[in-house]
Amino acid sequence: MNHYTLWHALIGGILIGLASLLATVLSGKIPGISGVFSFALWQSAALFRPMRPLVVMAIAGLLVGFGTRLGGGCTSGHGVCGVGMGAKDSIAATLIFIVTAMMIVFIYNRVVL
């Protein structure tokens, strides 16, 4: 999309209109994004029971983001691709994060729960 013209605006608008029309026919309701999103949110909240308190999940997310970038990979980069190629650094990284995670689960299940 290097050359934006008003045709792009019109075509985009037509697609949005078609999508809205389709969703209206499918649901029998007026489907605004705000309504659809919040409906999906509550449906999802009813479907999935949280494994851990939300504060724990936020801390876990921070550690996973920081650790994977510092360590140069996660379960897919080190675990699948690196180990698959037989790379020593990835094998070391994978052993370290699996053993650490097992220790944390051991402690969490016995101390916190």
Partner: peptide
């Protein structure tokens, strides 16, 4: 880094 990731993964 891998150890920190492991802590977050386990949590």
């Amino acid at each position: 880094g891998s150890a920190i990731f492991g802590v977050g993964w386990g949590l």
